[in-house]
Design a protein around this nucleic acid. Sequence first.
DNA 1: TTATTTTATTGTAATTTATACAATAAGTAA
DNA 2: TTACTTATTGTATAAATTACAATAAAATAA
Lengths: 233, 233
Amino acid sequence: MEKEIIYNPHVSVDCVVFGFDGEKLKVLLIERTIDEQNELYNDKKLPGSIILAEEDLDDAASRVLNELTGLKNIYLSQFRSFGGPDRTKDPRDILWLENTMQLKIGRIVTVAYVALIKIDRKLQVLRDNTQVNWYDLNELSGMHLAFDHAEIIRKGLEYIRHNLDIEPHLLFELLPRKFTLSQLRALYDTVHETRSDVRNFQKKVAQWPYVVALEEMEKGVPHRAARLYKYKK
Amino acid sequence: MEKEIIYNPHVSVDCVVFGFDGEKLKVLLIERTIDEQNELYNDKKLPGSIILAEEDLDDAASRVLNELTGLKNIYLSQFRSFGGPDRTKDPRDILWLENTMQLKIGRIVTVAYVALIKIDRKLQVLRDNTQVNWYDLNELSGMHLAFDHAEIIRKGLEYIRHNLDIEPHLLFELLPRKFTLSQLRALYDTVHETRSDVRNFQKKVAQWPYVVALEEMEKGVPHRAARLYKYKK
DNA sequence: TTATTTTATTGTAATTTATACAATAAGTAA
DNA sequence: TTACTTATTGTATAAATTACAATAAAATAA
């Protein structure tokens, strides 16, 4: 006999998942469709949902991310909670909540998590009617995002910028397993909003013991191939 | 006619307030007394409480801190939420919650804030039966703290250590308005867990434009008086 | 008064780290 | 062979960090 699923409709988790396409940072959003008086609206939102009654916050974040994107074993860091009483006041958001959750929903405080993942990880939709996709951070300004998700993304970005200074290791979550120093530099400059000098950057990396050169070279590029490197804890 | 006060019994805020006594970091705790079958237990807890139904998290933190300690205009930073389903399972904690709140309480997710304040600020108890006091961080290990407040304090300390590297300005919240360089150095070394060299430290401070020397000297010390400095944004 | 005690204040040399700057090498494509 | 594109590498200078100890100033005790 199955255990009944009991939700805690007062608290949710949301996951801000970043990826890097070689040039820009991208964020993972899912599509939601709202049937408002037989008019279909199309929206984007962060992967997130209310938590279960007897579930830890970290567990909820992993579970919800998996259910909505298929991603497993993702390192999620809680970075902030959002709880303005008005964040669940938009009629469209209320409609969607009550349709999907089948619950009367009042105010929801959400606990937000960030993750950095390789952009080529397979995404599989586990629920009908949802699409998962990567979006450019610039595109977002012209997009309608659910709830206060635009703000959550902004704060999440702030958080990783802040924390990659202290934990450079996290950077490598965003790169392919084998990468060139150009790719690493492009990523580094993107998150730090800098334009570092090639020579100085290579000197800096040479001092990072966790970046090791491989014998292998890049392939299929229409110019001189670069050496590949890997990250070693 | 007074507005009825409606609580949101699913979410609380807790404030970790640090002070510096010249040697050590201290944390502000309030006393709680529990009447368990006519036996009185004495406990310590962080200033915190459940939020109101229509109240922003930041507002709740300010309000609750003020109600429990009399402190006003405190700069509070949200640093983490705690939501393990077991955090409100201790019978003594449940008893206390139901007595003070006059509500059936289930699981509570708490949003934690930190603040740094001058240790000589006046604390006034605004509710009967509560005492507010500074406690040494070392003392805590031998003390029974409510809920998961020991963990919250630990994480709060981690957070400020982490953040004072980036925002040295926050340090001055912990010092008197006029301070000596010895005091500043003692504080600096305490939060960074270092023992910095006197000369090198003075050189470092000389480069901080926001630390300015006053004409005034320290008074009432049984040895050579040191120059006083102040912080200027 | 003088000596003693305590803390405050200050400089220099050596090392490490960060910055500015451009020429050559190795491939691909025409 | 040439043109094109990106990869790779070194040196000089400036800035920041570290190591290290003697003297000055005030209060107290003799």
